[in-house]
Write a protein that binds this DNA or RNA. Structure first.
Length: 628
DNA sequence: GTAATCACG
DNA sequence: ACGTACGTGATTACT
């Protein structure tokens, strides 16, 4: 046995690294006893983060409690694997920090299914985020094991990831090669592998104390664990890439990017991604750049360039308000094609697993509002929606089709429900009783608002103004931003906002109440599900957005739980804030789509929440106009 | 590492 | 007293 002694919070701790059959038997004896006493902290060390890539390896599995850790060298196979697997299969309760990662690793590389692990898991990262969802940069404790340990367990808790990076360098390895290349018997590697489980074991009671002190219910903790499992299930399923299409797409985008880069070069811009060059060239052409960035430099973003190129930012059509600047036009086109190629097409091709799938990591509790985030292989939540060409690269299995089910105006409904906005609730509740000719495409809250304020003669232009006003309320925007967003002059927005407030006076009242409550309870507003949402002292107005965004997230979260209960998990592919993307066999698509709609249809404090499913073809792009 | 940009809901 | 657009992820240039 190799044994390391260390000190955590003034107490001696031990990290054991079994070397012999006898050592492994000692581990088995410890494990048997520890399992009877309480949960066992669990962690893994692997070759990296690309779990689904060929050549990926599980290196060690660590088990531990407050004082003792065992680092089992899975990579050595044989009895090492045997004893680790025994413990993985039979332990009653595990504590894991960021469980989805270890679930996926053990599912794919240890033959211990995620299905068997998750009901036995408590994720300390979930608990930490329910205490404080903010990153350190936002003034929170953060959710990394290191920062949490330093806060709760021992201020001098080692930065295992950071310190190992230094060790990697001393071995001639990098951050990218270190995890795979460091020798399995390296002392620092093994010590830190063991300390991580000891820290996790010590963290949990501290988090429990905070959760209980703050009145966070166990039901919320359980709910988040189930959502995390559903998200991890979707990560494992992945998204299938149409490789030939994506290769051609990448080549086409590359050609377009180069074609317009050549045009830009003729005007002196060698690199279309260099703001400095763009600014110089445009000023040299006699253009004036009046908008500035936060640091005071001239702003040359898409909006500015579209104006110079006389192009509508959304439709791409000519505005006919000025002579188009050919350089601005070329920069827009070259940059867009370059970004789409690198961020989407190339990313898909380089992230594919041997089965041609990408596995974006779905963080079920990412934002401070609880919103989910998708990262890693592919930022699947941020594909261009204005064009089908990128989404066309994602396909369902042969014979399957894509189904997208999204909530209708969820944030406005949530606002009506939470702030108890009477006339808004009336609109949503009576949506079916309006004459068909008034809402030929179904009830629309923004048109309803426009009619409420302007009378039955309200136009589409009025609708646009009040839609802007509605978003302004949900986001906390003012006259200037709403004017910029809608393109309508401030002289039109100002009275519209005043009329909006008269029509829905409850919104301001709720905002004031939420801000007052937050100030009296430590700058935290509590969501409808009991989640804590810390507010920034200097922008308490954001409370309306936090309440709405958070409740909307929980509408999707609860719907996802209902979907699993209805047996829809195998069809689910991706959550996108107000939407669930799914695939299903073509012959079952209608039934599956209806089931998704039903899971996303319910009452929220007297407001009907409704959803619409769209059934497409084999590619995701088919839901955006592609013919395949 | 930071700033700026662009993609989404 | 007044008014504030919210939340993400990825890439590139530049220091």
């Amino acid at each position: 046995m190799i044994t390391y002694r260390h000190s955590v919070a003034g107490e001696a701790v031990t990290v054991n690294v079994p070397q012999t059959t006898r050592d492994l038997q000692d581990f088995a004896d410890w494990w048997d006893d520890a399992d009877a006493r309480g949960p066992i902290a669990l962690d893994t060390e692997t070759t990296g983060l690309d779990i689904f890539r060929t050549g990926y390896r599980l290196r060690t599995v660590q088990f531990g409690d407050r004082t003792t850790a065992w680092v089992i060298h899975w990579e050595r196979g044989g009895l090492f694997e045997f004893h680790a697997r025994n413990a993985l299969e039979q332990t009653r309760r595990f504590l894991i920090h960021n469980a989805p990662f270890d679930w996926l690793v053990l599912d794919r590389h240890a033959g211990v299914s995620m299905e068997s692990l998750w009901p036995r898991t408590t994720d300390t990262q979930i608990k930490a985020k329910l205490v404080d969802p903010r990153a350190p940069q936002e003034g929170g404790i953060g959710s990394a094991l290191k920062t949490l340990s330093a806060f709760y367990v021992d201020p001098s808790a080692p930065d295992t990831q950071g310190d190992l990076t230094a060790v990697f360098r001393s071995l001639g390895l990098t951050k990218a090669t270190g995890w795979a290349g460091i020798p399995l018997d390296h002392d620092v590697y093994n010590l830190y592998a063991g300390l991580d489980v000891i820290l996790t074991a010590r963290l949990e009671p501290c988090l429990d104390e905070d959760l209980s002190r703050l009145g966070v219910r166990q039901a919320l903790v359980d709910y988040e664990h189930e959502i995390a499992y559903i998200c991890t299930h979707m990560s494992r399923a992945g998204l299938l890439v149409d490789k030939p299409y994506t290769e051609e797409l990448s080549a086409t985008l590359g050609a377009v990017s180069e074609e317009f880069a050549a045009v830009a070069a003729r005007y002196g811009v060698e690199n279309v991604n260099s703001q400095a060059q763009i600014i110089d060239a445009l000023l040299g052409m006699g253009e004036t750049l009046s908008e500035t960035t936060a640091s005071g430099k001239p702003k040359v973003d898409k909006s500015v360039l579209c104006h110079l190129a006389d192009i509508d930012q959304n439709s791409g059509e000519r505005l006919e308000v000025r002579t188009p600047n050919p350089l601005a036009d070329a920069i827009i086109r070259s940059k867009r094609a370059g970004k789409w190629r690198m961020t989407y097409a190339e990313r898909l091709l380089t992230s594919m697993d041997p089965d041609g799938k990408v596995h974006p990591f779905i963080n079920s509790l990412r934002a401070r509002t609880g919103r989910m985030g998708v990262s890693g292989d592919f930022a699947a939540q941020t594909l261009p929606a204005s064009d089908w060409m990128i989404r066309r690269a994602i396909v369902a299995n042969p014979g399957w089709v894509h189904i997208s089910t999204d909530f209708q105006a969820i944030e406005m409904r949530v606002l009506a429900a939470l702030a108890d906005v009477k006339r808004m609730k009336d609109g949503f509740c009576n949506a079916d009783s309006y004459p068909k000719e008034e809402y030929p495409e179904g009830f629309d809250i923004h048109m309803y608002t426009a009619r409420l304020i302007k009378g039955p003669g309200a136009t589409k232009a009025d609708r646009k103004i009040f839609k802007g006003a509605g978003f302004g309320k949900v986001y906390g925007g003012g006259v200037a931003t709403i004017s910029r967003q809608t393109g309508a002059p401030e002289t039109e927005i100002r009275p519209a906002l005043a009329a909006y407030d008269r029509a829905f006076p409850e919104i301001k009242r709720a905002s004031s109440r939420w801000q007052r409550e937050a100030r009296s309870t430590g700058m935290v507003t509590v969501s409808a599900t009991g989640r804590r949402l810390p507010l920034d002292r200097d922008r308490t107005y954001a409370v309306v957005n936090y309440q709405c965004q958070s409740a909307a997230r929980d509408c999707l979260g609860q719907a996802m739980i209902d979907m699993r209960a209805r047996g829809l998990l195998e069809y689910m592919r991706l959550p996108i804030h107000d939407e669930i993307l799914a695939t299903a066999p073509a012959e079952d698509a209608a039934d599956v789509a209806r089931a998704f709609e039903e899971c996303m249809t319910f009452d929220l404090f007297g407001v009907p929440v409704v959803a619409t499913a769209d059934i497409g073809g084999r590619s995701w792009g088919s839901l955006y106009g592609a013919d395949y």
